Computed example of a mutant assay.
Amino acid sequence: MKISFTGKTALVTASTGGIGYAIAKLLGESGAQVIINGRSEESVHRALDRLHTDVPAMHVKGIAADLGSDAGCQRLIDAAGHVDVLVNNAGIYGPLDFFETSDATWEQYWQTNVMSGVRLSRAFLPAMQQQGWGRVVFISSESSRNIPADMIHYGVSKTAQLSLSRGLAKRFAGTGVTVNSVLPGPTLSDGFRDMVKEEVERTGLSAEEIAKKFIKANRPSSILQRAATVEEVANMVVYVCSEQASATSGAALRVDGGVVDDIL
């Protein structure tokens, strides 16, 4: 199967590192013109330099915008132009006890994890419908179904993405536009590697080994019994954005290694 995005423009939010970068890179390798996004000019320039090295023939531009606010989303919308494929990857996470989670923190998670996708979808979906083709993907999480007790605020925001994705898929039924969610589980992202850097130095274990220990202790239902790579997550996202996935819409597609213990 040969996936091609020749002639398509893809916007991947929060794509200067981790899963977002892997998605942008694979889309570029598949022929898409790609727009990457990060919160700062510095992070965007670093990612652009890296992409030009990794995929020299890739057509890519970068837009710095913090998607945790209406103004930041509008800045990205205004600068992006036409978009055929929208990957809503922007999101924040972090453990915090429910009784220590302030209204301001709840609002921050809601604005970044949910409203950024609302605003960008509202901006780009009408043109996709008009041309009779488009793809929207929300990067949710296994935490949307397996709500973590130490990150309830995060889990709620990720569950909301599933509702948003399913509702938009139904709203654009029969138009040639598909809307789906992808649910990664524990993943060896840049954020995870940064988080365990001190433990790597202290113990001499690799990030992969630390991830295996975490999964055994905290995600014992995992069938994979290891963390996924960012490339494994990107493979699913790029497929569901492709022409070949035209019969898949309104789905919540798991790349969680079987952490969510059900058969659906």
Rank of each mutant, 00 (worst) to 15 (best):
P184S: 00
L264F: 12
V182C: 07
S15M: 13
A207V: 15
T175H: 01
A22T: 11
A104P: 01
A211D: 04
V114Y: 02
G72P: 11
A24T: 10
R219E: 10
I152L: 14
N89T: 12
V55E: 12
L253N: 08
K213R: 15
L188Q: 04
G117F: 05
A71S: 04
F192R: 11
G134K: 04
V260H: 00
A245S: 12
S222A: 14
V60N: 00
G176L: 00
S15H: 08
F5K: 05
V196S: 03
S30C: 12
A227K: 09
R75E: 10
V156G: 01
R75K: 11
E100A: 09
A104N: 13
E209Y: 06
S189H: 05
Y239E: 09
K8R: 15
G38A: 01
S221Y: 05
V136Q: 03
A64G: 02
A123V: 10
A90K: 00
I92A: 05
M1E: 01
D150Q: 02
V60Y: 03
V240W: 02
A169N: 05
S30Q: 14
F99L: 15
K197N: 10
P148C: 06
L224C: 06
G28Y: 01
R119C: 08
S165T: 09
A10N: 08
G18D: 00
T9D: 04
F172V: 14
A234E: 05
V156C: 11
I147C: 06
G174E: 07
F98I: 10
R171I: 11
V260S: 03
M128L: 08
P148H: 05
T175Y: 03
T9I: 09
R202D: 13
V87N: 02
N88F: 00
G250K: 12
V177I: 13
F124A: 07
V44I: 15
A127G: 12
E107I: 09
A251I: 10
G134T: 04
G134S: 06
V233S: 06
S4Q: 10
Y93V: 13
F138Y: 14
D84E: 10
V114N: 03
Y154F: 14
V200E: 11
V200F: 02
E232V: 08
G17E: 11
T9W: 02
G155D: 03
V114E: 07
M128V: 07
S206Y: 03
I152A: 10
G31K: 07
N89C: 15
P95E: 15
E198F: 05
V114H: 01
H59V: 15
A47S: 15
S30E: 02
G185Q: 07
R219P: 00
I23G: 02
S30I: 08
T187H: 00
A211K: 11
V196Y: 03
S222L: 14
A123M: 08
V238W: 00
V118M: 12
S181R: 00
H45I: 10
V60R: 01
S242A: 10
A207C: 09
K216I: 11
C73G: 10
G250L: 07
A160D: 07
E243F: 06
R226H: 10
L224Y: 11
A160Y: 00
Y109T: 15
H52P: 04
F5H: 08
R166K: 13
I23N: 02
S206M: 06
M128F: 05
A211N: 09
D190Q: 06
V182I: 14
G62S: 09
V200L: 08
E100T: 07
I92T: 09
D84S: 12
N89F: 05
G68F: 03
